[in-house]
Design a protein around this nucleic acid. Sequence first.
RNA 1: GCCGGGAUGGUGGAAUAGGUAGACACGCAAGACUUAAAAUCUUGUGGCCAUCUGGCCGUGCGGGUUCGAUUCCCGCUCCUGGUACCA
Length: 946
Amino acid sequence: MHKALIFFYFCRHYKKAIKNLIMAEYNFREIEQKWQQIWKEKGTFKAAVDPKRPKFYSLDMFPYPSGAGLHVGHPLGYIASDIVSRFKLLKGFNVLHPMGYDSFGLPAEQYAIQTGQHPAVTTEQNISRYTEQLKNIGFAFDWDREVRTSEPAYYKWTQWIFMQLFSSYYDLEADKAVPISSLVTRFEQDGNAQVKAVCDEDTPAFTAAQWKAFSTNEQQQLLLHYRLTFLAETTVNWCGALGTVLSNDEVKDGFSERGGHPVERKKMMQWSMRITAYADRLLKGLDQLAWAEPIKEMQRNWIGKSIGAEVVFAVKGSNQKIQVFTTRVDTIYGVTYLALAPESDLAAELITEDQRTTAEAYIQQAKNRSERDRMSDVKTISGAFTGSYAINPFNGEEIPVWIADYVLAGYGTGAVMAVPAHDERDYNFARHFGLEIRQVIEGSMENGSFPGKGGIIMNSGNLNGLTMKEAMNQCIAFLEEQGIGRGKVQYRMRDAIFTRQRYWGEPLPVYFKDGLPYLIEEKDLPLVLPEVDKYLPTEDGAPPLGRAKEWTYTTETGTYPLELSTMPGWAGSSWYFFRYMDPSNTNSFAAKDKTDYWGAVDLYIGGSEHATGHLLYSRFWTKFLYDIGAVSIDEPFQKMINQGMIQGRSNFVYRIKGSNTFVSLGLKDTYDTSAMHVDVNIVHNDQLNLEKFKAWRPDLANAEFILEDGKYHCGAEVEKMSKSKYNVVNPDDIIERYGADTLRLYEMFLGPLEQFKPWNTNGIDGVYKFLRKLWNLYHPQNGAFAISDAPASKEELKALHKAIKKMEEDMANFSFNTSVSSFMICVNELTSLGCNKREVLEPLAILVSPYAPHIAEELWALLGHSDSITQASFPEFQEAHLVESNFEYPVMINGKLRAKLDLPLSLTAAEIEQAALGDAQVQKWLEGGAPKKVIVVPGKIVNLVV
RNA sequence: GCCGGGAUGGUGGAAUAGGUAGACACGCAAGACUUAAAAUCUUGUGGCCAUCUGGCCGUGCGGGUUCGAUUCCCGCUCCUGGUACCA
């Protein structure tokens, strides 16, 4: 009796444990660790050049390793690209699927300023954490190819590319970058009159004789006007207190966002990249790319090509000329004033004595507002008259010259010809200051100004009666004939500023001699970031590198100071996709045979927030590298998918004010409550785990609850994922609880990849159940592995081949969520058929392996294979298994479903009609009469109109 | 303002060369197993009406084309991403 009781007790409590031992339930923890280890040991995902196989380059936007670690949103795109990579492996492709880190950046430097911790140390720690987290998810990355932009061995080549840009200019005749040495040769022979190249607007003309007579310094100064990366005076947001340049979005109301220090617009010497030289190629190149149309459109807007004309206005009683850019030169007779940007030097010069006080006060006021403030404050109209008049070259009319802050110094020439009748901003300005409004296009002025692009020109001398296009052509011809203007293409995009006054970035390989920049020698690369005592600007406002003890460069002629600024964040990320092809090369950034083999990225997955920055810069550098013959492609990313951001989903509890009692969601309005964020990790399916809640914080230990049906329901809201909202979900926690395969499947199952969606774990159980059902197919009796070699039935093959077909179609459309559904359907069907046939279960394991690689490998091994499942071939879809002999026809009457008829597919339309009309249900609706019309679509539908 | 994307049950979502709306999953409900709970399994689940086999309504709103519209066209509303005195 006693023994029996103990035995009984033992059985009850250890039943499950024993079952696990002898019945091999799906144990994801064991399986996943085992296979991650095997992949690592066997180098399963090592990629190597293999001309015999077609290549597939699958790339993710590499992350900046932040201190917060990966959250559940980061891996979304990586999982998608991993699925595609593994699918391509099964399809026989040689797949390159690497991962690395964009490891220079501001957060590590800010942390360094606060703590004194070297950014390299912080970065290293963060990278270890990221790598560990990524490895837990079981990605098919070739980790041997990892790159880090902050490693000297990497940024050596970032510096090298900078040097090539410095040594090149853009030749407009060849329409490509050409070595600057050939430009020097041309200067020596002919001067610069015949040279068609992209250069600064203010480049002076000179002859060969003059060139030769110039001093070395003068020659170098002139060459800077042509180099693709150059030092030039740029207007920036300068914050003296922080000692650095701020970007527009770091400035609020004239003060720095961080610290609230005053910010002024200041002209500073900065390095720039002449990306505008590539504007047209960047625009045209978009047409060839398989990118989402919105992203292409964003780039087109960013490049902002406008076709128009440049017109020179003489100033009355002065030698000054005012140059304007306009897209509507056809409205030239409607010009009633000119407007200059407050920053322009010309504006200050044109102020007459009687206007001096007001005009100069206005310029001063405008200067203190950032460009962004000026732009966002559209409603306030402000300006000042200079006192000067310009002459309209078409009719000799005198027109007043104004200063207006709606004119931007950085676009076009910083001066506009105002046509109030046909431009809204000019109209508002003219109304505000009582300036003339003269209509020159036929139409009604009832609703103020109108653009009138399709109208006929009037009040315009010999342009009268012409269309916009005709008038424009005629005007441009006149301007060119008179030498006072020309047709011109203007881009909104500006040259990219390439320096930051920061520490944690690539040093520029440049030293200064007589105030002019020179490149260090290639053999001295990399120019390694020096140690500094603090990561702050020096007392006299120089960048942090000014603190380095020895930051000089020695040549045969002497020792010279090195550049103190560093490169911006986008430098290292603009070419990393080439480095992956040959990551440890010490002789070049990547060997040509390797870049030729791997070519362009076949699939690039990342967020759309990089649409205009990173993607544009990468395309620019790739085109440049192509021009100099360093690579053979001029577009880096053939196909791109933008995954939607995963937003946070916060949970709330409702505390009765002034108490420690919490009310469930449905009852919260019956009490006086206030909402409080609660950690989403102690909430499941929006139900609060009360014990965990009490343990969450000491002050909640004695919390009390008012429940609904014995449960505490939490409120929920979609917000940004952030620590302070307690809605950050760490992939490690999901993996701990459900395993990596479940995480991978669930992230895909959540919805379309490109859609923005909040993270919630409400449906994750369903995915986990699916994996267990899958496992049970191979372990049918008491959880023991058993497989039958008997031939599969028609139904079993049909279930399988439906899934094969669906997966291939979905892969082509990157519709991962629907593939997961089709796997579920397949497994459900096979379960109810009781299928454990090798003929079906072997291909099934291959099918799910891109999504759930660990469990697939385990099943593959159980099936008796010694190779990795990644070596298998994707099962071939056979249409024959899906062919049906019958079809259940929906019969609709007046467009409404009234009956269903199971009929052979071999029937003709007439036979189907016959059958439908004979059906009892249909007869009832026809009420004895004949239908007015019968539509029969064989294999689809029958519709009767009565 | 301009340029994109979107709106489908209680929830995530499926279905568009126009052809059975709501696949798959969550949640919920009922039942089985259990001392109980969890887990698991079975059944049901768009709304309204009906005693049942059934009927009416239903894909943001209003029109249109069509035998037939979530899908195409016109006009709105709301949400969302980008961009913004760009001459």
